[in-house]
Design a protein around this nucleic acid. Structure first.
Lengths: 332, 332
DNA sequence: CTGAAAGCGCTAACAG
DNA sequence: CTGTTAGCGCTTTCAG
C-alpha cells in the first residue's frame, strides 16, 4: 500500500501538502493539487484510516449496539440510522449484544478502543457500561430504552401510552379478563408497557390481578411459555396484551397449539409490528412503532451532539399507532 | 485516558514491560507484572486499540458485509459467525450493503482503511471490489454467493440441488405448470436455483417455458409483482417455486389478494425459511438452509486463513433440506 | 501557500 | 528478563 510519502515524492511535494489535498483543507495551489491528484491515481493511494484515527483521536464510524439482531424491530431501526449517517459522512457498524451485558460491555470496550465517533445503543441496562462510555467523552444516544442514572440523548417510543391504547382496545372489543405478557423486569420498555396496561385495566374496571401478569424474555419461546403458564394458572384470561413482537408470535403459537380460537375465544394484541403480519392467520393487531423514524432521530441527535458536545441532553418520544387487524376483533 | 507511559511511570517500569504484560508476551517477572497490573487498575488503563492497530498493521475485528439486513437469512448467519469469532478473540461488526454495489464498495473501503482482520461478504457481484480486498492481503471469505473471477474461500448452500428437490416435490404433488420466480440475473444463487428448477422440470417432462420464469429482486415487492405478472401472462401456472424467502412471502400475498386458494388451486414452495412460517396460513413449504452452520463455517474458514494465509482456497457446500408444510400439499 | 518537524500510543527489534 | 529506541502513517502547528 502506498503511503502519503510515496504520493508526496511522486508529486514532488511534501506530505503535508498531500494531506491538505486529501482533506480539502486550506487552499492548495491548483497546479500542485492537480499533480497530487494525479500521483494519488497513479499509485492507487488509499489513506490509512488507522494512522489518521490515531492522529486525530477519532474515527468516522458510528457503532450501533442493538440487543437482538433476530428482532426485526432492531434491524429496522438501523435503516434509519444508516441513511442519516451516510449523508453526514459516517459509516455505521452494527454490534449485536444479544441481551447479554457481558457482550454489550465488550462491544462498548471495542467502540472505545477503536475510538468510534459515536455510539447508538439499546442498552441491556448495565449502567457501568454506559458510564464508561459517557465519561470517555464518546457521544452516545440511547435508543428504545432509556438509561437510568445516565444523562444522554434518548429516543423512545411512547410505550406507556401505546400499551394503554392496546389494552383499552381489547376492553372495547369486549374481552373481560385481559392478561399481559411483558418483558424482563429490569428493562424500562417492559416496565412502561406494563404500566400502560395496568392503567388501562384499572380505568376500565377490569380485573387487575397479578395472576394475569407475566414477565418473559422478549423472545418467542418466552412468549410461548408465558402464554402456557397463563392458560394453566386458573386465572382464566380471555385476551392478552404481549409487550413485544416476538412474544406475540410465541403467544399465538401457544394458542394455536391448544386449539384456542383467536379472536373468537381469545383476543390478542401485540406491541411492535412483525414482517408479513398480514400473512399470519389471524392477522395480528399490533401497536406499530415508527422504527425508521426512531433510528433516524437517534442518528440526528448523535450528529448534533458530535457537532456541539456541550449541549444539554434531550429526550425525544415518538408516537406509536394501534393497527387493528383480525386477532383482536371478535366476530359478531 | 491513561496511556501506556502513565502506567509505566506509575509502576516504575518501562512502557515495553507494560506492553508485554498487557499482551501476555514473553515472561515478565512476577513481581513486576503484579506492579503493572496494580498500576493499570489504579489508572483504569485501557489500551488504545488504534495505536496498537497502527503499529501491528491490523485489528482484531471482522467485518461481515451482508446484502440485506431486512432478510432474516442474513441476520441469522451472523449468529454463527459471532459465536466462532468470540471464541477466537475477534469482534464482529456488521455492514449492510443493501444490494447496492456502491455501498458495498464503501464498506470494503472502510474495512480496508480500518485494517480489519478479515472480511466475510455476501457480494453483490462487483468483482473490482473483491479484487481490491484480496490484493490488499485482507483475508476474505465469500458466503452465500461465490465470486466469479476471484479465488477466495467460499461457503455455499447446495442451491441447485435444493431447487431441484423443491421443484420435483411440486411435480410429485400433482402440479402441472410450475413457474419459477428467481432472483437478479447476475446473482449466482439466482442462477443456480433457476438451473435446479429447469433441470427438474425437464426431467419430469413438465412444460419448460420461458413464459413461466421471472427474474425479480429478492424482495417482497419483487415477488409480488412477479407473481402478478405470471398470473396475468396467459402462461397459466398452477404452482410456483420462489427462489428466496422474501419473494415467497410476496408471491403468497399476491395469491391471497387474488383469492387463489393455496394449496388447492396453486402450489407454493419457497427457498430459505422465514421466521414464524408456522403461523402463516397456509404454512409455507420451504427449502431450509443451514444458516447458522453457514455462518459458523465461514468464520472457521476465515480463522484458518488468518492463521495460514498461504493455504489454497476452498469451497464448502452445505446441504439444504426440504421442509414440507401446507402450501404445496394438495388436499385429496 | 508550502515544507519541516514533532508526535498520536503502541510494539518489536535489539542490546544489555 | 528488562529497557532503549525507532518507527507504524498521518495531521498539524510553526516557520518561512
Amino acid at each position: 500500500m502506498a503511503t502519503i510519502y510515496d504520493v508526496a515524492r511522486h508529486a514532488g511535494v511534501s506530505a503535508a501538502t498531500v494531506s491538505r489535498v486529501v482533506n480539502g483543507r486550506t487552499t492548495v495551489d491548483a497546479a500542485l493539487a492537480a499533480r497530487v491528484h494525479q500521483a494519488m491515481r497513479d499509485l492507487d493511494y488509499r489513506p490509512n484510516a488507522v494512522a489518521r484515527n490515531l492522529r486525530r483521536q477519532q474515527t468516522s464510524i458510528w457503532a450501533v449496539i442493538i440487543s437482538d439482531i433476530g428482532n426485526p424491530f432492531f434491524t429496522s431501526l438501523v435503516r434509519g440510522v444508516e441513511d442519516v449517517a451516510q449523508a453526514a459522512g459516517y459509516s455505521v457498524v452494527l454490534c449485536n449484544s444479544d441481551e447479554d451485558p457481558g457482550k454489550e460491555d465488550r462491544y462498548v470496550s471495542a467502540a472505545l478502543a477503536e475510538q468510534m465517533a459515536g455510539v447508538i445503543i439499546s442498552s441491556t441496562g448495565k449502567l457501568a457500561t454506559i458510564t464508561r462510555l459517557v465519561e470517555s467523552g464518546t457521544p452516545v444516544v440511547a435508543i428504545d430504552r432509556q438509561i437510568r442514572g445516565a444523562t444522554v440523548d434518548t429516543v423512545l417510543a411512547d410505550n406507556e401510552h401505546g400499551a394503554d391504547v392496546a389494552t383499552s382496545h381489547l376492553v372495547a372489543a369486549g374481552y373481560q379478563r385481559i392478561a399481559c405478557i411483558t418483558g424482563p423486569r429490569k428493562l424500562p420498555t417492559a416496565q412502561q408497557r406494563l404500566r400502560g396496561y395496568t392503567n388501562a385495566v384499572r380505568r376500565h374496571k377490569r380485573p387487575a390481578d397479578d395472576q394475569l401478569i407475566r414477565h418473559a424474555d422478549y423472545r418467542e419461546e418466552g412468549g410461548y411459555a408465558a402464554m402456557a403458564s397463563l392458560l394453566d394458572s386458573g386465572a382464566e384470561p380471555d385476551a392478552v396484551f404481549a409487550a413485544n413482537n416476538l412474544m406475540t408470535v410465541g403467544a399465538m403459537e401457544c394458542l394455536v397449539d391448544r386449539g384456542i380460537s383467536v379472536p373468537g375465544r381469545f383476543g390478542v394484541v401485540g406491541f411492535d409490528d412483525i414482517p408479513w403480519a398480514h400473512l399470519v392467520r389471524p392477522s395480528l393487531t399490533t401497536v406499530v412503532q415508527p422504527t425508521y423514524e426512531l433510528g433516524r432521530t437517534a442518528a440526528l441527535l448523535l450528529a448534533e451532539r458530535i457537532a456541539e458536545p456541550g449541549r444539554p441532553a434531550s429526550t425525544v418520544t415518538l408516537q406509536t399507532e394501534l393497527k387493528i387487524r383480525e386477532s383482536s376483533v371478535r366476530p359478531a
